[in-house]
Design a protein around this nucleic acid. Structure first.
Lengths: 139, 139
DNA sequence: ATGATTTGTTAGTAATATCTAACTTTACCC
DNA sequence: GGGTAAAGTTAGATATTACTAACAAATCAT
């Protein structure tokens, strides 16, 4: 492991998450696409990637394409997991509309520790089961 | 109204909240106490208050004591309300320990819109009622 | 009332996250 | 293959939030 569990800023976590999504969606990660996805200017994306490189979470040779390191991929997956979970919680459990759920999931994903995330996960799972069993279900 | 609903940064919302608590606890608001409550250096507190003054949310004559304006008080109350609600939600509904609930409520309070806050409020109220009616309750 | 303590401010620095403008590379097309 | 378009970088500026060190003002206690 390159470095212990340095906490990342919101901006860097968002960048990692965008990178993972782009990886899965396009097969490659480009500065321009990161910038578009996060609605930031390209130089801002360049700089964020530079920081992630310093932290050992990304790799890129100048003017080349960007890659997540193993650790970067892990961190990114964790962020994405939180995001998805919170989105579901906000929409399914609380009844928020899709757009609000996504926006606020993105804001919350940086605020909660893994313990709380696990609690929300369990709670959401229970809620969904309870709710989907319309009236009587299996006993 | 001095200014429309300028969104405030987390730091400024935290400052307003601390000021309101100090107002209620001590009757006065001092830079030193704001700094202590937020665990920031005194010059940082001075600076935050200066910004709040510019925004019409606080009043203070140099070296004098600090006050919330009517609008500042409103905003502060809103932040505190969110904080308290989220703390209850995290501890009562999700079962987080008191310390975690408070810390993460403080982080979440800046991330959620009033609509979502209202949803959490309703949900928590329902949950508490449902849960406190131990087994049978009325009917 | 004066000297020491506490409180508050100023000044200067740093890190983060932004931006725009200008430049350099790379890629693509004919 | 050479020129344009797209992608990426560099440089320089700004705002926010934070700090420490040094100073000024207010309070307090004897």
């Amino acid at each position: 492991m390159p470095d212990s569990v340095h906490p990342l800023s919101n901006a860097l976590e968002d960048c990692l998450e965008a990178m993972l999504e782009l990886q899965d969606l396009c097969g490659t990660i480009r500065i321009t696409d990161i910038a578009a996805r996060l609605s930031i200017a390209k130089p801002t994306a360049t700089q964020a990637v530079a920081r992630l490189k310093e932290l050992g979470l990304a790799r890129q040779e100048t003017y080349g394409h960007v890659e997540l390191s193993a650790e970067g991929h892990e961190r990114a997956s964790s962020v994405r997991h939180r995001h998805r979970l919170l989105r579901i919680f906000l929409s399914e459990v609380l009844g928020a509309d899709a757009e609000t759920a996504d926006r606020e999931a993105c804001a919350m994903e940086h605020a909660l520790g893994s313990e709380t995330i696990a609690r929300i996960e369990a709670f959401t799972a229970g809620f969904t089961k309870r709710t989907s069993r319309q009236d009587r279900g299996p006993q």
